[in-house]
Structure formats: C-alpha cells, structure tokens
Amino acid sequence: MTVLNEPSSCSRREARKRDRQEMILEVAQRYFLDHGYAGTTMSGIAAALGGSKGTLWSHFPSKDALFAAVLDRVARAYRARLSQILDPDAGLEEVLLGACISLVGKVTSPEAIALQRLVISEGGRFPELSRIFFELAPRNTRALLAEFLEGAMRRGALRAADPLEAARALTALCMAGLHHQLLMGQISHVEPENIERDAAFAVDLFLRGYAPAPGSSM
C-alpha cells in the first residue's frame, strides 16, 4: 500500500511546489516593476511573500535566476498563444495580421511597457538584465516567427530570404508606432482599433517587401 501511495504523494508535493513557485513569481514580478531591478532584493521579496528568505532561495538561487524565471513565465505564455496563431495551413496574410495584432497588443500592454522601461533604465548598470530580457523575450519570439516565415518561403508564398532577418523586420514594423509612443511617454494608452491599424500597416509593408518575384511558382 505504501508503494502505491508514493506516486500520489509525490504528485501532491510537486503540485504544491509549482503553486508556491507561481505565487513567488507573481509577487516577484510586481516587486521588480515597483522597485526596479537595483531596488529589488531577495529579502524584500521574501518579506512581501510573508515567508523566510531561505524558503525563497530554495526555489531560486539568485536575483538573476528569479528575474529570468519571471520573464520566462510571461514569455512562455505569450509564445503559446503565438504558436496557435501561426497556422501554416491558413492564409498567409490572415495569419500574419493575427500574429501582428497579438504582438502589438502584447508589447503595448502596461505590463510590457513597464518591464521594457525597467530594462532600458537599468540595463547599462546590469548587463545581465538586458541579456536575460533579450534571450527570453525578443529572441524567442523572432525565432518562432522565423520558423513560420521559413515555411512560407519554402511554399513560395514569400520570396526566399533569411527567415530570422524577415522576422526581425516584421517585429520592428510592429513596434514602430504605438509601442514607441508609449515607451517615450507620448501617449498613455492605446485603443484596440489603433492596435489593429498598426498591425495592418506592418503586414502591408512586410508583404510588399517579401512578395515573391513575378513569375515565380507558388
């Protein structure tokens, strides 16, 4: 009987551990955004959690590791949504428009703007901060887009080119409007129709730049 109960007991322990980590990440995310990277300490987060610093360290060995986990949690959830949008069997323009609406909506959210401002303001003093952010957010998003674009290039729906460079161009177009205005404090919020406008503009320019050559097989 003891042997039969071990898997269930282990599963419960793992579930409690995951729940605890999720709670830590939620509190840590708010703490980083409220206090900045330099102003955040493991002791401060432990106090906000109402637990001991030792308990926090048992889950995350350093502030860098905790910040990376916070970013990975946010980025992983977004990549899951984007993966569902990037359907290779659907129409190219329709998929790109959906992906760009999703991307513009994500990068213009209050949470994303606050996080990017944190990285920009403190990245010079903490190079590791910028490295963690780039590897877990922009780089992974571009890689996901590049994989989809490479498939479209193979099918002849887009001209042959470096898919990573194409993904970089598409994301840059998405971030050139509302995102920059928000980041610089020129506007304080965005409306859904403006997100759709920015996305449509980005897709239109992208497809003009990567259209197949006349007479190429589709």
Rank of each mutant, 00 (worst) to 15 (best):
R139F: 10
G44W: 03
R73V: 07
A47Q: 06
R76I: 04
T41I: 09
R76T: 15
G36E: 08
F206A: 09
A48L: 08
E94S: 13
A161D: 07
A213H: 12
G54T: 11
L97H: 06
A112K: 02
F148Y: 15
P7W: 06
V203Y: 00
A46S: 08
R30W: 08
T171Y: 03
V74P: 00
L25F: 04
Y37L: 07
K106Y: 05
M218H: 11
G215Y: 07
A68Y: 05
L178D: 01
L33M: 07
E165C: 11
T55V: 12
A157L: 14
L178T: 03
L4W: 07
G123K: 04
F133G: 00
V74N: 01
A172Y: 11
L96H: 01
M175E: 15
I120N: 11
A46C: 06
D89E: 14
G44V: 06
L144W: 00
A69I: 04
V74R: 02
G185D: 14
G54A: 13
S130V: 03
A80D: 02
R20F: 12
M175T: 15
P127H: 14
R117K: 15
L170C: 02
N194R: 12
R142G: 05
T171P: 08
L86V: 06
H189I: 15
L97D: 04
V203P: 00
L183Q: 02
L144P: 00
G44L: 06
F60G: 03
T2Q: 08
T108R: 04
G98W: 00
E22P: 04
C10P: 07
E165M: 13
L97T: 13
P110N: 10
L49Q: 05
T141D: 00
R155H: 14
S9V: 13
L136M: 04
R125E: 15
L183V: 06
A161M: 03
K53C: 03
R12H: 09
Y210E: 05
V70P: 00
L92F: 09
R76V: 07
